[in-house]
Design a protein around this nucleic acid. Structure first.
Length: 430
RNA sequence: UCCUCGGUAGCUCAAUGGUAGAGCACCCGGCUGUUAACCGGGUGGUUGUUGGUUCGAGUCCAACCCGGGGAGCCA
């Protein structure tokens, strides 16, 4: 039989199969070797008994080092003692490469050491589980929008200026002209929505802020849908449908990985729309009641978000923030011009804001006024204002931070484990 | 940028101002059911850097470098 993957072993009970992989760990008892083989889909224990194989193969098994690449043949046998339910009785062993002394041992390590060896750390059970769940989350996001008739439109990564003008951007040279790494694709999605109706972009974004917290990366991935003729209410319904769908997909397909991460599943099972909604005004009242010293007009800190989120069993919307704490393009509430038609979606358990969205200003005059108030240069945004000149319509959209969503669903204490090669304030390697 | 904690063997950590140690990894030996296997032996150190106090500094003092945790900003 040809190559079989470890996750498919249950379909081959009693058969001899070939597994191509790496040595995860090895134990020996003199005349019997236990070799844990990893192949990217799982881990299985191979049992090699001295009298059942040639002396050369038995000696080779004895010399195997951690992470050596090997091809083994063995008979699949169900065994109560095996963590995955199955074992291999080994019949053949072929060495592909004998690994040098592996830096990451089965014992514990510090975070700096692990981050320096991120390229190898990815092979561990835990990181492997996170990578697979991240992959599923990305796929479920794309399926959600594709199934609803959205067109995926890519936004540029090299841009002439800031999107919102607030955060610090990475600067680069563009043939003797200044260019910046994009911090959002949103403005471009507004243009695309006027062309295709329902659109989204999904790609990396960059922030040069010197943030040093468990919630920030310099380079992170964001999905940004934008819908023509959608208002604030439509926008929030789309958001809760998306988040509910993603969580249920992960629960459905990746229980084993969530188990590896020791995730409390019950905290995810409640994540079904509709999500609770509170206004900014109510959020301020709730915080004041909880003893926080905060006044109307201030933005929330990470601790404030946690206090609010803990009061609900699923993600909670906070809507209609004061104009002054939000971006220039957000549409004022016609009934209360001091607040805008926006919402933040706060994840439970202290994972913070995973979505920020709003209805956009569709009136040219008001947009011009806001840009002047924010000191934004007309030249750079001329094209953006054109969208309000030629068939302007009400429209809304939002941005969902992929890594914060992965951290929340996986129950990770720090965002640095949610992306294969994190870019942090002091880390550009590997 | 600010606050706070830390830096000792490849890794994780001990060590009253008085001879630098353990576990893991690695090497040698033992073991037919191990689950981070276990048992015996061995290799491995400019204690982050520079300067100071002292008869004597891993330990006390100063500056700097690097990292962890948190704040601000945000997704």
């Amino acid at each position: 039989m040809g190559q079989v993957y470890i996750e498919e072993l249950s379909q081959h009970e009693g058969q001899e199969v070939t597994i191509k992989g790496w040595v995860y760990n090895r134990r020996s008892s003199g005349k019997i070797h236990f070799i844990l083989v990893r192949d990217g889909t799982g881990i299985v224990q191979g049992v090699m008994v001295k009298k059942e194989v040639s002396p050369e193969i038995f000696q080779l098994a004895k010399e195997l080092t951690q992470e050596s690449s090997i091809i083994v043949k063995g008979i699949v046998r169900s065994d109560e003692r095996a963590p995955g339910g199955y074992e291999l009785t080994l019949t053949h062993l072929e060495l592909v490469q004998m690994a040098e002394e592996y830096p990451i041992t089965p014992k514990e390590h510090g975070i700096e050491f692990l981050m320096d060896h991120r390229h190898l750390w990815l092979r561990s059970r835990r990181q492997h589980a996170i990578l697979r769940i991240r992959s599923e989350i990305i796929k479920s996001i794309r399926d959600f929008f594709d199934d609803r008739g959205f067109v995926m439109v890519d936004a540029p990564l090299l841009t002439p200026a800031a999107c919102e003008g607030t955060t610090t951007l990475f600067e680069t040279d563009y043939f003797d002209e200044k260019a910046f790494l994009a911090q959002s694709g949103q403005l471009y999605m507004e243009a695309a929505a006027m062309a295709c109706g329902k659109v989204y972009c999904f790609g990396p974004t960059f922030r040069a802020e010197k943030s040093k917290t468990r919630r920030h990366l310099m380079e992170f991935w964001m999905v940004e849908p934008e819908v023509a003729y959608a208002d604030h209410e439509d926008n929030m319904r789309l958001q809760e449908d998306l988040v509910g769908y993603v969580v249920q997909r992960v629960l459905e397909k990746h229980r084993p990985e969530l188990d590896v991460l020791e995730r409390d599943i019950s905290r995810l099972e409640t994540v079904v729309p509709p999500f609770p909604r509170i206004t900014y005004d109510e959020a301020i009242q709730r915080l004041q009641k909880a003893g926080v010293d905060i006044k109307w007009g201030a933005d929330f800190g990470g601790g404030d978000e946690t206090i609010l989120a803990e009061q609900f069993d699923r993600p909670v919307f906070v809507e209609k923030y004061p104009v002054q704490v939000k971006a220039f393009y957000m549409k004022p509430d016609p009934e209360r011009p001091e607040v805008v038609l926006c919402d933040d979606l706060l994840a439970p358990e202290g994972y913070g804001e995973i979505i920020g969205g709003s209805q956009r200003i569709d009136d040219l005059g008001l947009l011009k006024q806001r840009m002047q108030e924010h000191d934004l240069p007309d030249e750079v945004y001329a094209w953006y204002m054109d969208l309000r000149r030629y068939g302007s319509v009400p429209h809304s959209g939002f941005g969902l931070g992929l890594e914060r969503t992965v951290a929340w669903i996986c129950g990770l204490p720090h965002i640095r484990e949610t992306i294969p090669f994190p870019r942090l304030i002091n880390r550009l390697y590997p």
